[in-house]
Write a protein that binds this DNA or RNA. Structure first.
Length: 193
DNA sequence: CACCAGGAATGTA
DNA sequence: TACATTCATGGT
């Protein structure tokens, strides 16, 4: 219940975030990969390049030569890895995007893709596939320690910690994760961690 | 100059 | 299982 209470507090302080409301679901998949250990500002540069080259869609992403894709995503860093990961993830996306399978089965399939770890998989499930999975990132762990006074062992433990204490609610999971990121940025800009 | 940002794979013990 | 290293750009 403290977990729910802190959500209300964050919402009051930062307001609704409404992440990834515009654009296509597929753009969420691309953004989820490009943002791996990278600032969103650099991701936006890469997304702009992809948009200008008309490559921000499944068909063109699969057709475009790897070396050309590397140049387009260059500003987001790890550009060789990310170019390859975009190809692999796009293939999987075309295969799963309209699937009615169980959420945890979809999660296993995403995790089987090289370059898709737990955070990226859950981000795709939550923001692109409308599945209620709580996303855990570095800010989430800091938030748990600093605000909730909780330290856990691994990614799964953090994800289940939130899911056990919140109603299964797609919009709530989306907003909570976005608000935790805002909280993390605010903490960084004002004081030490 | 160092350090990090909405991580993940790989290698080592 | 638990750490260490590698991948790479741009901002502060």
């Amino acid at each position: 219940m403290k977990v729910r209470k802190e959500y209300d507090s964050l919402l009051k302080r930062f307001g609704p975030q409404n992440w990834w409301p515009a654009g296509t679901k597929y753009e969420v998949v691309v953004g989820a990969i490009l943002t791996q250990n990278t600032s969103w500002k650099n991701v936006e540069r890469a997304l702009s390049s992809l948009r200008i080259k008309k490559a921000l869609n499944e068909k063109r992403m699969l057709e475009i030569p790897l070396k050309e894709l590397e140049q387009l995503v260059h500003p987001s860093g790890y550009y060789r890895q990310k170019a390859e990961r975009l190809k692999l993830a796009t293939r999987k996306w075309t295969e799963l995007k309209n699937s009615a399978e169980d959420t945890m089965e979809l999660r296993r399939k995403w995790l089987s893709v090289k370059g898709i770890g737990p955070e990226t998989a859950d981000t795709i499930l939550l923001y692109a596939m409308d599945r209620p999975v709580f996303v855990v990132d570095a800010y989430t762990r800091k938030f748990c320690k600093a605000v909730l006074g909780v330290e856990l062992k691994n990614y799964e433990d953090y994800r289940l910690y939130f899911q056990k204490r919140l109603p299964v609610d797609l919009k709530l999971y989306r907003e909570y994760h976005a608000l935790i990121v805002e909280w993390g940025k605010a903490v960084r800009n004002q004081a030490g961690p």
